[in-house]
Design a protein around this nucleic acid. Structure first.
Lengths: 336, 336
DNA sequence: TTGTAAGCGTTATCAG
DNA sequence: CTGATAACGCTTACAA
């Protein structure tokens, strides 16, 4: 049987409330008693039972992390960052993979709430009528990742989609490309997809390039689909000069589609990815990509959440973090 | 305030014990009362408070998962598999990243034990004197992944390292290679490393190839180190004909070292990886690799653990799962 | 500053 | 089969 607060109290000759007070520094306790308690705690190797504590506090030192799939490169990195920071704030994280399924998202929301987690970090591909409702009437603090949930009263950490897309596309234009394809990730209802589209169009417009609908590929983060679609383009000999894919995985899939059909990147087509996940450095050619400060975003999300849990920061926040274009080897200057 | 067992009891006109019995089907209850309780549960939307339950049961429906780093491809996939299965057995998983640090491993063991998790799945690069002690006197069921912990009384799921290494190396020999390098992952104390070495030597011996010490590269799963070392070899023009690297990431690092220096794979050197993680299919050339049934291993580990938690399966088990050689494009038949 | 005692929401023991 | 009631280990008014 593990040692409890009672054992400590008895051995230190004080009441359990006093012990509770010193280990939580919740109320003043005289120095000598404090010391005595600490000594006994040490001696007995006492660790407070977090379950008992949670029961009375009605809140666990746990943060739920709902993500599409940890086995995806960026997600793994993000979860890693969150976990890292969580531990320093004495939180554990419980992980939930939704595989992009809204039903799962809802199920996990309820499950985590029942578990009485302190808060939830939510990563979703798209926010729609169904999961938005859960966001609206969640009783726990939530932080949304890479999507804007402020309309639903949910604090969010994200990058500026319009701007980052604009910059990626502008870069492609600057290095000489004219026929540029955008692989966007959500459907047309999605705010972030619309922003991507806006950024894309703005870059085109500024350089007097005509927008062509066929150069928009909707992908839903499905790398296989991107692979197939780009392959079709190759077969039809209708490849664009350059592609901006809104995830590294999709960018790599696009490259693979070309390479597997005898083309070369960046010689035959320049490609930019998104996120700067580990795979983008691992792959050859190394991927030019719009970098997310993943680790920082994880830290920020976690910090926002813990603050919200502790009751500071009542109002919903939107933190826009800075992206950066990382030029590597999948893009190439061409002279036309 | 959430609805509790008391509310249900009152509304159903029964005692809380009865409610408890019906929701847990722990003791017989007459059919009509049972129905009444179910109805009220439904009506009030009652969910048992898992924290309270844990307090009295002295055990949480939580499984601790201690891994080196979720952001590594294989680990992410494994965690995904574990999580998947855990949910179907009504367990949550809390994730702990050790970054390969033994101190962290110990800390997490204690932390999880304090949390009263039901059990722990432990993935470690190496098992040494320090963490072995924790394994020996853990009071919670543990399942060790890809390492043999049976000497320490810990059940394990693993593949046969000797055999898999033997087969990989034999394959390289069969397709015409003679000068084969082994990138092994642990230090010489490690049982699994020794097995790798044994398998390597056996394959060599059977084909009358002399063992050369310089063809063993110790890497500790450090892909960067592999990159640097292989690069050195390229510079010295002392590259082997083929390499078996005991992780996909290290195999890819080796390829990168060559490609970045103008060599081609598999033309200049054949390479086999280990795990068949997602990156091995994503990379070009697609990696020939010794596949682990990652998902199955995760399921098995989880199942072993839940059984141990429930008190079945008192004895320690060792489950050896079947690996498979997956030939893709990083190896090539040569005629000498 | 310290102690007493009342919960927190369950499960489990023990009578009936 | 059903109901009181005592834990489980802790926090926190309320008293002293």
């Amino acid at each position: 049987m593990a040692v409890t607060i009672k054992d400590v109290a008895k051995k230190a000759n004080v009441s359990i409330s006093t012990v509770s007070r010193v280990i939580n520094s919740s109320k003043p306790v005289s120095d000598d008693i404090k010391q005595r308690v600490y000594d006994v705690v040490e001696e007995l190797g006492y660790t407070p039972n977090p379950v008992a504590r949670s029961l009375v506090m009605k809140k666990q030192q746990i943060i739920g992390v709902i993500v599409p799939d940890v086995s995806m490169s960026v997600i793994g990195e993000l979860v890693s960052a969150i976990e890292d920071n969580a531990k320093t704030y004495k939180y554990d994280i419980v992980l939930c993979n939704t595989y992009g399924d809204v039903e799962n998202e809802l199920r996990y929301f309820d499950l985590l709430k029942a578990k009485q987690v302190g808060g939830i970090i939510f990563v979703t591909d798209e926010i729609n009528d169904i999961n938005a409702k859960r966001l609206l009437d969640a009783e726990v603090p939530i932080v949304l990742f890479d999507r804007d949930g402020t309309d639903y009263g949910v604090s969010s950490v994200l990058v500026d989609q319009e701007k980052s897309t604009y910059e990626a596309v502008k870069y492609l234009i600057d290095i000489g490309h004219k026929d540029i394809m955008l692989v966007r990730s959500g459907d047309e209802q999605q705010k972030f997809t619309i922003s991507q589209l806006d950024g894309y169009k703005r870059a085109l417009k500024e350089h007097k390039i005509r927008f062509k609908k066929k150069r928009i590929l909707e992908s839903n983060f499905d790398a296989d689909k991107v692979y197939r679609e780009v392959k079709k383009l190759v077969k039809k000999d209708d490849l664009p000069d350059a592609i901006f894919a809104t995830s590294d995985a999709m960018a790599i899939a696009a490259i693979n589609a070309m390479v597997d059909n005898g083309l070369k990147v960046p010689d035959d087509c320049s490609i930019i990815g998104l996120f700067d996940s580990k795979i983008s450095k691992f792959y050859r050619p190394q991927l030019t990509t719009v970098g997310y400060p993943i680790y920082d975003m994880g830290s920020i999300a976690l910090r926002m959440l813990t603050k919200a849990i502790d009751g500071h920061n009542k109002k919903v926040q939107k933190v826009v973090v800075q992206h950066s274009l990382i030029v590597r080897d999948s893009t190439k200057l061409i002279n036309s």
